[in-house]
Design a binder for these strands. Structure first.
Lengths: 121, 121
DNA sequence: ACGAGATACATCGTATCACGAGGTATCTCG
DNA sequence: CGAGATACCTCGTGATACGATGTATCTCGT
């Protein structure tokens, strides 16, 4: 899978993973992994970024003798997911532009101002 | 619109813009602009990259006293679009993961190996 | 005739970012 | 006792989108 395609999904994916329940780094990766590969270094970078943007809050707690950092989504984080859903409509329009006419060539009326008078050599 | 979300679409968008007819930089931007903002510097960077990857071929021709660089997609470029369509299925799965349970909370049977016993403080 | 804006190309520097490589430490289980 | 899982972290690098900037010609209104 093209790495570039996943960008933009990563941040929102992490937010989605903690939307309905608090979680921690290791578990977030496991939860996301069926859908999207994400390395640990990437995840922790993202968590730092989301914390800096106040899209989630962090606290540390002991669990089984070890320290864990727990993450909880903020209202701002939930807003971010909602914005993503709006952006998705635009993304789908782009997708339709890319895949238009790739199966059958339906040559309709061509009324573009920047009309094509291409000279083939 | 989040810049990151567009990444991965950009290259394929340019290929899609020249898929059914040869084109040139300025026209490609105009054709794409209703769907996706792309600066000129970005476009020319992408065209260079696609040429290096042999996804399109380039030649120069005079038009109205000025030189234009024309671009034509290669079979490899068409393959790239087809691969994108396959990748899109994965992207949609990620989208469903992100938007799942954001409207109604349908708590079904939870049979995950990494089950959640989160302690809320 | 002249200037503004469109057309058409290009380069350079910067900021962002995903990720591999590497590190530390504890727990579990055979 | 050692391997693998759990759990966290940092640093360097390469890829890349884009603003700023530059060059040159054509078109069109006044």
């Amino acid at each position: 899978m093209d790495i570039q395609l996943k960008r933009g999904l990563l941040d929102v994916c992490v937010l989605a993973a903690i939307r309905n329940e608090d979680s921690y780094g290791y578990k977030i990766i496991k939860d996301i992994s069926p859908y999207l590969e994400m390395s640990e270094s990437t995840l922790y970078t993202i968590l730092k970024r989301l914390e800096a943007g106040k899209l989630l809050i962090v606290w540390t707690a002991e669990h089984g003798g070890r320290l864990r950092k727990y993450y909880r989504i903020t209202p701002g984080g939930i807003d971010r997911i909602e914005e993503f859903k709006d952006d998705w409509k635009e993304i789908e329009a782009i997708y339709r532009f890319i895949t238009r006419d790739t199966q059958k060539l339906t040559v309709g009326s061509d009324d573009e101002e920047l009309s094509t008078n291409m000279e083939r050599q």
